[in-house]
Simulated scan of single mutants.
Amino acid sequence: MIITVTAEPGARQGLLRWNSHEARCALGRSGVAAVKREGDGVTPVGLFPLRRALYRPDRGAPPETALPVAPIGPEDGWCDDPADPAYNRPVALPHPAGHERMWRDDRLYDIVVVLGHNDDPPVPGRGSAIFLHVAREDHGPTEGCVAMAPDDLRRLLADCRPGDAMEIRLPA
């Protein structure tokens, strides 16, 4: 299955479609673009495989999906320092280089799908930690990820299988 994300004008929100479903989604604070750089707030255009799903076990059951699923723990992070050998990879905290904490207080990472963006192999500076995750209640912009309401995310994951991908598109 190919999940499509089409940006709306202004490109901080879009429409995510799969099978016969569609849902509103939040996109990067700097919109959607073909060129992604670390820290620019852009959601990258392209076709990205769904690698695996992660979830906070203290905040809910694992999502029902055929994708690989793993729990997030308090010491889990994701390296976002282009100079570090672990760039755009999961890391254990504390980590000496720049990183993002996966165990968040704001619930945005209660469910996370790792997208195969800049990971095979990672190219320093081309962007890290591009995920599909839970949106803020107002669907406010992300730092470059795609985000959707938790119920929509769980519904999508129930239809996902290994080999599925997300295609992020610019507005027509």
Rank of each mutant, 00 (worst) to 15 (best):
D81F: 00
A34Y: 00
R155A: 15
E38C: 13
A11I: 01
R136Q: 08
E22I: 01
A97L: 10
L156F: 03
P44S: 13
V146E: 04
H99R: 06
D159V: 06
P85F: 06
D110T: 09
E137G: 13
P150F: 04
A158R: 14
D105R: 15
G28H: 08
P62L: 10
M148H: 06
V32P: 10
P96C: 10
A70M: 09
S30M: 09
M1A: 12
G98C: 04
P85A: 07
R56D: 15
R12W: 02
Y109S: 12
D40K: 08
R136T: 07
L132A: 09
R89E: 14
G77Y: 05
R17S: 09
R154W: 01
A165T: 11
H99L: 03
E75L: 03
T65F: 03
R154V: 01
D164L: 11
A158P: 03
P150V: 14
I3V: 15
P171N: 10
R136N: 10
R107L: 04
I2H: 11
H117V: 13
A23M: 00
G14A: 04
V123R: 14
G39L: 08
E75C: 01
V5A: 09
A147E: 02
A92W: 04
V146H: 14
E100M: 02
L156P: 00
M166S: 00
R155K: 12
G98Q: 13
A147L: 06
V45Q: 03
L67W: 02
S30E: 13
G31E: 09
V5I: 14
G144Q: 12
R59M: 12
D151E: 15
L15M: 12
